[in-house]
Design a protein around this nucleic acid. Structure first.
Lengths: 209, 209, 209, 209
DNA sequence: CATGAATGAGAGTTCATTCAT
DNA sequence: GATGAATGAACTCTCATTCAT
């Protein structure tokens, strides 16, 4: 084999490898979203690809490992956007509204991904906090602590404030997925108003459902 | 075994029979809390009772069914308390603070139950929304709609408001379980302030952790 | 269920249990003899019974465990006979001839068992020395040491003497299994003569094969 | 890579190619000795070389085939020595002592090879009788028959005599490997005395162990 | 109704072997 | 001829569920 051919071969190989890995992650995303983490088997995942069962183990050691990779990939996609939004914010209202807006946009546009964290309505919700996800939470808390230091937010418990934002974000996102009458923008407006002025500040709107 | 003994045994058996269901539920609560829902097997549950494996199926059809029963039982324990609290409320602040207070008290006092929903700190969260739990959510939404009708709350999206309360409640509860420096009362105060006046109203407090 | 019935039930159960265990051991004996230890799978063994795959694991944890049970069972069957023969011996010749005779009789009469230790001629021999087997060797060595102490055998290396007897016993047994012209008695006479007087004492005989 | 380098590489490759087979056999010897035949996988073997898994199959069809090659190689190394020793012998005592001496020397000096046949001391013994090994046995038998024809050995069963020598040789070799107080020479003396004069002729020696 | 061994589908995983590069 | 990822048959083992006792 000439050097050229060898090089090309290596190129092709690398390509296949990369695309196989992605194929598994993509299949996993779909299957997890459909069946939920617990019910999903490795076999389900590979069955959703064109690959053979053994091939799975060339890329991941276990179901848990794909799941982590998947979560990390997701978190890696949202985290920087959220971070950027918060940095761009010139006041706390922008901080809050930017965060919610970005998150809800992501959820609306990436149904499947979010479904992974939010399985069969009425059945079981699994959310696995991988290092990446936790890092995202920590990042938010740190930014809130900074806001407190800067006096834009009262000297309150940053940890609980973070938890509250996360709780509202995820729980409202669930409804966003289920309700077609609800836009990411409206959801963000609602959550922002709540955090900026409490219940009294909430936008007037005919609640449906 | 003499006839007498047998009779006594039979008497005891009736008793046992009555409590077998409860024994299974109780064992399930502990085992689920320890191992998480996914990792728990029916075997694990019956091993934690004095019963035989076959007996399980006289009471429940599957692991899912015990879990449901367990969740329902839990919801049935909290729901009336929450409801009562909201009915007793003379204004919306009491409505909100009473709800959070009651929920957080429950969480603090009934670790095991809540742990079921929150296993492997920082790893995996499972929450199963059984009919009972959903009914609790619906109840809360209905009450919020009533509050809106009565004018104590602006005419906002009751569904999202409910979601927000639920999100904050569960997420803050997680931190309540993990943080020893946090009392149910403080958590309730925090959540109440957030909902009554937004971030600006949050109680000042040296956040530790 | 009356007490009688219950007792009878328990009887039947125990019976089944015992017979299942034996069925597995028996199947294992045959399969190991056929395929050799290495090539045998747990599946092969249960396939050779009427039982379901899972049932295997109610009785043994692994292939190794059945094998041990099998070896121990075998050793337990021969060891006492060998021991008795050695104790009965009034002189060293009886000691030696009794041992070989008993062992070769056993091998001739229990082909299958011995084949376990001696697979496909021309392929692979596996012999696993379980505690029971080793204990049998140790017993022989101890008896030889006693013979040395009593002056019936020169003060030689008892360990090597034991090894030599074992080596001759197993290797000649192989030929015993393969050669139809060779009786246990003749084999025993040969081995005894070798140990009593060396090559010069060996019985004259037209070697066939 | 320059053309020169390539050429050199090609030269080296030829070399490598010539020695690849040997590299695999050598790796196999070590790995088999370490893990035992059954537990060893082809992967284990190639992992112990610098080669890729596919390359294995350019040289051997299967694990069994390397094992055969390995055994044959070993037998091929000892057989001529044994044969030479027997031919050189001027009487039967030299025949016997020369054989044992040579075999035990080999065992002491080539631990690894012998370990292949004797893994997990006191646990599992695997011995594979490849054609080469069997040929060695046949050769010994033929030589014994010759000795019988020449009248140096009584007209006894040459097959059993061969079996006895083999049995003693292998079994004593096991002890040789395990006992540090035992030299190849002493072992050979012991075995020779046994075959020349039976138990009564065995060398006096303080048996240790 | 309780019991607990039997069941067998199916999960996860390994590994000899193939084959495109 | 070397490479090493892909393959998929086959293995070990688990476990929800059944059913004779």
């Amino acid at each position: 084999m000439s050097i050229e051919l060898e090089a090309r071969a290596r190129g092709k190989r690398e390509e296949t490898k990369a695309s196989n890995r992605q194929a598994i992650i993509d299949a996993a995303r779909i299957v997890f979203a459909e069946l939920g983490y617990g019910a999903t088997t490795v076999r389900d995942i590979i069955r959703a690809t064109e690959l053979a069962s053994g091939t799975f183990y060339n890329y991941f050691k276990s179901k848990e490992e794909v799941f982590q990779a998947l979560q990390d990939e997701t978190a890696l996609r949202v985290r920087p956007r959220l971070r950027a939004e918060r940095i761009r914010a010139r006041n706390f209202e922008e901080f809050v509204s930017g965060s919610f807006r970005t998150f809800f946009d992501f959820v609306k546009n990436d149904h499947t991904t979010f479904a992974t964290m939010r399985r069969n309505p009425d059945m079981q919700r699994v959310r696995i906090d991988t290092p990446e996800v936790i890092a995202g939470f920590d990042e938010l808390r740190a930014d809130l602590e900074l806001a407190i230091a800067n006096g834009v937010v009262p000297a309150t418990d940053a940890d609980l404030l973070m938890a509250s934002m996360v709780g509202v974000a995820f729980e409202v996102a669930n409804h966003l997925v289920l309700r077609s009458d609800l836009s990411a923008e409206d959801a963000a407006k609602f959550a922002t108003a709540l955090f900026m002025g409490g219940v009294q500040a909430l936008p007037k709107k005919a609640a449906s459902r």
